[in-house]
Amino acid sequence: MKGGRWITETGSSTYLSEAVAIWFRDLRGEFRTRYAVNAILMFAVTTLIAVSFSIGSFRIGEGEQPFLYAVLLWIILVFSALSGLSRSFVKEEEASTMDVLKLSARPQAVFLGKLFFNLTLLAALELIIVPSFILLMDYKIELPGLFVAMVVSGGVGLGGGTTIVAAMIAQASARGALFSVLSFPLLLPLMITAIKGCEKAAVGTNNSGWPEVRIAVAYSVVMIVMSLFLFPLIWEE
């Protein structure tokens, strides 16, 4: 290999394959240490139990259920995500593996890898929390298709909006609090949209074209594309 043109050749390696390598490494590490999953899931389950225990399924009147349940669900999802999504970057900094990673990987690949990992975490979170929430609170949903689409696109937006913030706060002090402080204003439009979408799904409002899902998808695309542009700036040097 040495002496050839390999240094400036990309060969078969693409951003995607490198990102997948980072994604799988994070997953492997996560399986062995449960560093982020514990934080997120325990936070989510505790909150869900607290909500379910103190409100139950009878306190809220039939007419107000669709809206209030959507609000509760998204508060649980967003704040659980904020409690743990920064972990993958913070861990690199704490274990001082960040420098080696900076030396060996392209920034866009790092961003994508971490994004995939965060999306995996969010998928696990939603798979556990959303069905339990529906069962515990007796949440009646008229349009399951819209509901699922909203939860999925909202989850993608959560990951897309917070991954770059996680990379920033990992290199700052006062990490835990700062992550929520920085992410929340960015997530607000998404959260409001998702609540509205879930409410409509529960009521069964006939809205053709699913505008809320579209907004959430547009939000995700915009945030991810912007992050891909901006990430090299905060990652290098």
């Binding site: 990309t10 390696s13 390598a21 490494r25 240490t33 274990a95």
Partner: peptide, 24 residues
């Protein structure tokens, strides 16, 4: 000041850095 990934084995570490550097 550098560290490698503590929760991976030595070989897995090398495998990761090979892949991430794009050298197969």
């Amino acid at each position: 000041a550098f560290s490698l990934y503590e929760e991976l084995t030595a070989l897995e570490n090398l495998e990761f850095f090979c892949k991430v550097r794009g050298i197969g």
